[in-house]
Design a protein around this nucleic acid. Structure first.
Length: 241
DNA sequence: CCAGACGTTGTT
DNA sequence: GTCTGG
DNA sequence: CCAGACGTTGTT
DNA sequence: GTCTGG
């Protein structure tokens, strides 16, 4: 599954590096700090395509999907939607048909078994080259009856784990091939060809400190292995550029 | 018909 | 155990 | 996803 | 909104 992500690159790189043709509006310059350990319930950068103009936009949406028909805020809202079911479930299918989006990330975290019987060990997952990549997601617009405020939310689609991640976990987020970004954001109502695990070869994974367990500790050290050369001397990071 | 759920994950 | 907050 | 709280009363 | 269970 996917319950924590890294968005440490600049919004401009996250947007333009992932998909071209972004609308050059204020969100690209807004002063949002990098996120090294972003959690559900928080506002993250999401790329969407305007249905009529075709312009791409990069905006902050809240992680945790609230369907528009919800009377009250669900607790907790779904943060993931299974690729095998997203086109069929009443809760997801309209968003899947009409409101697909991309979450641009530098990496994400998965938890595997730890040393103790009931312990878990976090791992960071990223591209070997350290480049940002895009997660397939769906989004919704919801009006909070308490405040009258419109809230935009999203959920990350999950697939079975590929060979790399299967060693620690059964599921992984849907990672889109860059050549498929256009189709994913486009008008094709059911791009189910894209709902498959990403190939192992460009990816890498390494155990990280338990510091990652605390979302308050959203510190740059967690991203150091993503920067070329900085993994030296970090022990289990051997093999990472 | 109305009422109530609508999701995923991990763990036991 | 279960819910909330990040 | 994990971490941390989980409560009431009366008084300012 | 739409589906399921009673």
């Amino acid at each position: 599954m996917c319950g924590r992500v890294i968005q440490s690159s600049s919004p401009k790189l996250l947007g333009l590096g992932i998909v071209g043709g972004l609308a050059d509006h204020d969100t690209l310059r807004s002063n949002v700090p990098p996120r090294f350990n972003a959690a559900p319930g928080q506002d993250l950068w999401v790329i969407r395509r305007h249905p009529t103009t075709g312009e791409h936009s990069l905006d902050l949406l809240r992680w945790g999907l609230i369907p528009s028909w919800c009377k009250d805020r669900p607790a907790p809202p779904p943060i993931n939607a299974r690729a095998e079911m997203v086109a069929a479930r009443p809760m997801f299918r309209h968003a899947y048909a009409k409101r697909r989006c991309i979450v641009p990330v530098d990496g994400f975290f998965e938890w595997g078994p730890g040393q103790g019987a009931r312990t878990r060990q976090p791992y960071a997952v990223a591209m070997k080259e350290g480049t940002p990549f895009g997660l397939g997601a769906i989004w919704e617009n919801w009006r909070d009856p308490a405040s009258g405020e419109w809230i935009r939310t999203f959920a990350v689609i999950t697939t079975p784990a590929n060979g790399l991640i299967a060693a620690i976990h059964e599921r992984m987020p849907l990672i889109l091939d860059p050549s498929d970004y256009g189709q994913w954001l486009g008008d094709e109502p059911d791009p189910r060809d894209l709902l498959r695990p990403f190939p192992v070869e460009p990816m890498t994974l390494w155990p990280v400190s338990l510091r990652v367990n605390s979302v308050k500790n959203d510190d740059p050290h967690l991203a150091e292995p993503l920067t070329s050369g900085s993994a030296a001397g970090k022990g289990p990071d051997e093999g990472f550029p």
